[in-house]
Structures are given as structure tokens and as C-alpha cells.
Design a protein around this nucleic acid. Structure first.
Lengths: 228, 228
DNA sequence: GATATTATGGCAGTCGCTGACACTTGACAA
DNA sequence: TTGTCAAGTGTCAGCGACTGCCATAATATC
């Protein structure tokens, strides 16, 4: 439904030769694009080059992707879809914030292979940094994240048995959570150790800080715990 | 320093004739642009039309604004600069979250006249809704908000006497706060009463909900209060 | 009033993106 | 196998956003 889904997220096994061919072209486009972008930068890469590298015409490129941003964000998009799926898979008993947190941590697990099936992870990491540092790309990325938040809020609402349109708490929770996750991603991208382990550590650490950060007074180290 | 500032935010009184003329052209461009965009939509408006309506060449337009998005977001940008200024003006005693909240509420006050000096407020509101509903514009808007968050975090850090690069709490707080503010703005834009009073009400209400929303369990109505 | 600055316009050209049309290729049935 | 239909692809023409370049016109400075 939400555009997030479409990103190779539907794990429909390609049956006919036609669909297999389409998947191959799509993957080739993504690979060529990320390779070029990581190498020459986003703005330094033209659609013509991407298309040429994947051996299709420019027109065909635009039949697979609505715009240049979309290829660049294709893998990242997949990761986000993973996250939403992980949230859906969380046991009903978990409180909202815990579910979000665990979904994030859990989704880092499966995502590695899913990404590698398309492109080498280090390429993906390099592109991720590109996203953060390229204004146009970052803008598009943030917009998709906003869409994702919609999906997350809906799911939280569903879990807690309330309507997102009447009770603002799901959206508020997700907004706060996503904000923190963005900082997490940003900090991780800035630091040089681009491995999953450090990502997990930062994530946990920062999510733990959300309570103290919202507290009235900040004690010098650590801080108040807000739970109950 | 940050790009946010540049949006007519520097209240440097135009001295020479040259600068006054420049300010007039800039304002004319903004007015023409918002008028056209509110009327025909963002994508339905060409830069040529905007330039023509302001009686300058297209080339000149691009000397005033880096791209079409910038002119569409010019007023909104001013509002955000106001907000940052309002935060800076908060008394040192206020705890971080309270300062942010009061800065938001306070900035709604002065902003009315500041906006009206450029364009009628109802036009601005119509454009604001346009921003929320136009993907490309929303993307650009979200990116600027991310920049604003940087500024806010820095200011919070300064107030609390800690370095943003070592202590993550300022960023985390601001991220959570901004997330909630975004929901606020979105909900306000969706509802039909586009007046400041309802914006204030929603803002207060939603900010009050952030504690309960982060709590472990959600009681059906209202919820736990997290303060100490 | 001469001269140095700075703003503006016009033009050519690149790049992202789209519609229209013709052509090729895979799917499916007779 | 073959013929038909649907779907994917390439080519081309064209629009709109944006930039560099150069000539010109308007202010500022002395």
C-alpha cells in the first residue's frame, strides 16, 4: 500500500522468464547506480550513465524508477521495509516503545543478507553516507522516513487497539522514537566504524537516553529514569 | 551560519538604494511565487511564470533563490528562524524541554506580523498545506527542519553547558521534541481550522502526551505523568 | 563627472523527466 | 509450431529546472 513496500520487499518468487528478466534488469540498475554514485557522487552521476552501465536506455530506467533518487534509496528502502515487518512480527505483549526498540534491533539481523543479495554491504554503507551528505538525497530520504512513520504509527495503533486518527499517542511515540533513530543513524554515519555492532550499541544507548533527556533537570551524568 | 538564517532573518535595515531595491525584488519574487503556487500548485507553476510575475528574468530569479523549492519555503523558513531566536531568548533557568515548549509557543506570537509583512497569513497557510501535500516540497521542508534541529540542539547544549558532540542528550531531546512538533503541524494542517489558536492548543496537548506515550503501558485515557 | 562595482538580461547548453510511437520479445492457445 | 496478444524496450521530440558566459545597465565611490 504505502510506497515503502514496493522496494523488492514483496518476496514474490519470480516465476516466468519475463519476471526474472525484469528483476535482473532492476537489480542491475540498482547495482550500477550505487556503484557509480559511491564512486562519483550523486550529482556527478547522470541517469544516462546509470542506464548505460546497466545496458538499457534512459527511457527504460525511468520505467523502473520514478526518478534518480529512487534508485539511490532503493536498498535503504528495503531496510526500512524490513523494520516495519519486524515490528509486525513482535509479540503482542510488548509495550509500544519496547516493541519499536526490539523491532529495530531485530531487523538489523536479517537485513544483512537481504542487502548483500543485492549489493556488497560496504557499498551500501558508502551510499548511506552519501545520502546523509547529499542535500537532495537526504531530503528524499527524510520524506520516505516520514512515510514509514505513518506505517509504524498505524501498526502501533493496531497493536494497542486504538485509532490513530483519534488518539495521538501512537504518532507521538513513533515521532519521538524516529527522531532518536535518525540521530542514531546520523552519528553512526559520521563515525568511522561502519559496522553493525556499533550501530546496535549506539541505538541501545540512545534509546536509553530518551527518558533522561526528557526529564526536567539533567544531572551531569546519566540521569533520571522515567519508567514508572 | 546555518542556511536557516538567510531567510530575511537578518534584520539588517536596508541602507543604500541598491539594497532596498534588492529586498523589494526578493519580496516581489516571494509574493508572486506563493500566489502562483497557492493557485496552481507547486509543480504546476514554472519558474518562468514566477519571474515574469515579478518582472524579472528567469536568470535573475536564480540569483535570488538557489532553486524553486527555496522560494516556496521562504516564509516557512522565516518562521523557523523565529523559533530558534525564541529559544535563544528563553531565560537560563528553564529546563530544556520547557524551554523548547515555551519557545514554540512564544514564537507563534511575533511571527504573525513578521509573516504578514511579506504575505497575507491565509496565503501562507494555504502554501503550508501545499508543502505538506507536495512530495518534493515536503522533502525539502523536512531537510531544512533537520538543519534547524542541529541549531536547536546546539543551543540546548549551550544552555546546559555541555558539548553536543560528547553528550547525546541535547540531540535526542530535540529529535523527540521536533518529531512531536512535526505531528502537531501535520495534524493542524489536515484539520480545517487554520488559526493560530488551534495550533497552540494542539501543540500544548501533544507535548503533554509525550510522557504518557513513552510510558511502558498505555492506560486507555490520558496516562502516566512522567515528570519526576 | 569619470571610474569601479554590482545587478540584470539574453543565450546556449546540460540534465532530469515525460508522452507518443514503432518494434521486439515472451506468454498462451489453437 | 504457429499465430495472436500482451508486455518490455528503444528512439525521438520536447518541457522545465538550472548554470556558465558575456554584454549591458544601473548604483556606488571618489
Amino acid at each position: 500500500m504505502h510506497a515503502i513496500e514496493g522496494a523488492t520487499g514483496d518476496a514474490a518468487p519470480p516465476s516466468g522468464l519475463r519476471e526474472r528478466k525484469k528483476a535482473r534488469t532492476r537489480d542491475a540498475l540498482i547495482r550500477s547506480a550505487l556503484e557509480l554514485i559511491a564512486h562519483k557522487g550523486y550529482e556527478g552521476t547522470t541517469v544516462d550513465e546509470i542506464a548505460a552501465a546497466a545496458d538499457v536506455s534512459q527511457r527504460t530506467f525511468f520505467r523502473y524508477f520514478a526518478n534518480k533518487e529512487e534508485v539511490a534509496l532503493a536498498v535503504q528502502n528495503m531496510v526500512e521495509a524490513q523494520f516495519l515487518a519486524a515490528l509486525r512480527a513482535r509479540p503482542a505483549g510488548e509495550p509500544p516503545l519496547t516493541a519499536l526498540r526490539n523491532a529495530a534491533l531485530a531487523s538489523w539481523d536479517g537485513v544483512g543478507e537481504a542487502v548483500t543479495a543485492l549489493v556488497p554491504i560496504d557499498l551500501h554503507v558508502r551510499v548511506y553516507r552519501m545520502i546523509e551528505s547529499t542535500p537532495q538525497l537526504l531530503a528524499a530520504h527524510l520524506r520516505r522516513l516520514a512515510e514509514l512513520e505513518e506505517g509504524l504509527a498505524e501498526e502501533i495503533g493496531r497493536r494497542e487497539g486504538l485509532d490513530v486518527r483519534t488518539d495521538p499517542r501512537p504518532r507521538i511515540l513513533v515521532a519521538a522514537f524516529s527522531g532518536v533513530m535518525r540521530v542514531t543513524g546520523k552519528v553512526w554515519g559520521e563515525n568511522l566504524d561502519g559496522d553493525m555492532a556499533s550501530l546496535r550499541r549506539i541505538t541501545s544507548e540512545y534509546l536509553d537516553q530518551i527518558g533522561p533527556a526528557l526529564a526536567e533537570e539533567w544531572s551531569k551524568y546519566g540521569g533520571v529514569d522515567q519508567k514508572a
